[in-house]
Design a protein around this nucleic acid. Structure first.
Lengths: 318, 318
DNA sequence: CCATCATGTGAGCAATTACCCATAGTGCGA
DNA sequence: TCGCACTATGGGTAATTGCTCACATGATGG
């Protein structure tokens, strides 16, 4: 290149191209001309900006059908808040659909000027939320994990939801330094006897806001897929009526926590049913319907973000 | 149609199609299949959603070059805040580029929980801001116009910026019930002697936040184009050193208000230089450079939203 | 009752975009 | 220094999209 422009990072270029494309409404050809690059390069920059999440798209319209479902769900389960987004059709992953709505809900809390303690679960739904979250300054809040960050295989896949959010919003965060599920109740107790653990547990207990996914306990249970429960344990809990879990704590169709199986060894903090503070469930998908109903019945969660198909299925249950 | 679905409004359909397209990443063909409509109709729905502003696109990346310009402007003029967005290239209207950034700045204030009085000017830049504004509930704030809403030809084009914002955010608003520019100083005084006018004026004076456009006084002056000053008056003020105006009040290159021409007959409230509260100027374009510099010098505005080209031009002035 | 206008619809086509592939650079280790 | 692997680039091409036109449908008004 003959141009001796000040060096720009490739992400800068991507952002600039995306700006011209989305805000300026220019064609990729025009962008190429403007930036003095080839048409193909312009295309790559735009698509890269999209892939890296530099571009956020938000829909400013409440579709009537979804509003109706929200009202119906609020009435039926006495929810504090409810958000229903359109489904993305049969083939698509229902979790991606609710990501941006969940992010908007989360941002509501993050924008509050008074310091909050926000307790977070894990799961793919929360991951989707993080991806859609707009980076912002929210140093006044504290983010605490409800779930242990010591996985059986040493992976950190669970713990990093809190870390990723904290990273995006520059808030202090408190991982829960215990195994997700201990091999024995005694080991769990030993961890919880430690002062640092107790401090995090106490923080989680007094959280002003709780945001969690809801896992199903059918054969496609996330707990099973992620290796936190064995097939035998799942069978045992299913037989005892387990339909779902929140933050790893298993409950039955009425939303009552069970006193068996992994529930005796789960690290972290269970969400107290009937909190007077917001307890937001982020969940969608046909297999989660019973789990979501259970969690709402006993008010483990008192707010819900879901999609249209799931909302309809929930309301169609007697 | 054989389907007997519950009736949906056309905007609902547009929103749904746009959701599938932008959030779901589906092709318009797939959307057509999903919704049981023709491909063309799907295309129309998506483009309609875009045209009606149902879709908001925002860029989550601060381009380094723009950040540098912001820092430089802040340092040079002692600004409280400064936002520089990439320009959209030579041909494009610089005002559209800054709309979304201005909206983001405005939303910062609107999201504050404590009630604010927000005083607003007019102009194309503010119109662009309104278009990019996300509808929200901000009933706690009061919006007051700095500028009279009685145009010489009876048009309401000036007054409706405040109304449009108020409409979007459901905030009470206070138009300034005086002529934009009265024929004589006496008529102006007569209006300002009225109690209802005094109440609005007082509200505007004590505003916690001021958001205004900045007009140039060169031959393409908005005041001239909109018929608020005559060619002769413009010449007179240019001769006296006028370079710009804020809310209709004309100032010279040092940002000092002039005591002649229309300034003796302008209705509404002039922005006091050197406010300790935010006074945000929204302006971009080569012809506005001197006006913006003047306004910043005397601190008629202490915050700025502009584009890259304008920022560069401002800094290149000695 | 019919003309007229507005609104919406589908078809076809040109413009635009996404993707694939061959090739040229670039850094790294031998 | 020479491969070697890897990434980035531009050309080509198929898919996708935006636009215009002709027509249907229905409301409005003489």
């Amino acid at each position: 290149m003959s141009r001796a422009e000040p060096e720009t990072s490739p992400q800068d270029d991507a952002a600039r191209a995306a700006w011209l494309y989305y805000v300026g409404g220019m064609t990729q050809d025009q962008i190429a001309g403007e930036l003095g690059i080839s048409r193909q390069r312009a295309q790559r920059l735009v698509s890269r900006a999209m892939a890296e999440g530099l571009i956020h798209v938000r829909l400013n319209h409440r579709i009537a059908a979804c509003l109706d479902l929200e009202t119906a769900l609020k009435d039926r389960f006495g929810l504090m808040r409810c958000r229903v987004v359109p489904s993305l059709g049969a083939g698509a992953d229902p979790v991606t659909a609710i990501g941006s709505a969940a992010a908007a809900e989360m941002e509501r809390f993050l924008r509050m000027p008074d310091p909050l303690v926000i307790a977070l679960g894990t799961g793919r739904a929360l991951r989707g939320m993080v991806d859609a979250l707009t980076p912002m300054e929210a140093e006044q809040h504290r983010l605490v994990s409800l779930i242990g960050n010591i996985a059986p295989d040493g992976s950190a896949s669970f713990f990093d939801v809190v870390m990723r959010i904290a990273d995006k919003v520059r808030a202090p965060h408190y991982p829960m330094p215990v195994p997700v599920i201990s091999p024995t109740p005694e080991e769990r107790a030993a961890f919880h006897a430690l002062a640092p653990v107790q401090r995090v547990v106490e923080l989680a207990r007094k959280a002003d806001v709780v945001v969690v996914g809801v896992g199903q306990m059918s054969d496609d249970a996330p707990l099973l897929a992620d290796g936190f429960v064995s097939r035998a344990e799942l069978d045992e809990m299913q037989a005892a009526g387990a339909v779902g879990e929140v933050a790893g704590w298993v409950f039955d169709s009425a939303g009552n926590y069970l006193d068996l199986g992994t529930n005796r060894r789960t690290g972290g903090v269970r969400v107290t049913p009937g909190l007077d503070r917001p307890a937001v469930g982020i969940a969608a998908g046909a297999s989660k319907v019973l789990a979501i109903i259970g969690a709402m019945k006993s008010r483990i969660i008192n707010s819900l973000v879901t999609d249209e198909a799931t909302a309809t299925a929930i309301l169609n249950r007697p």
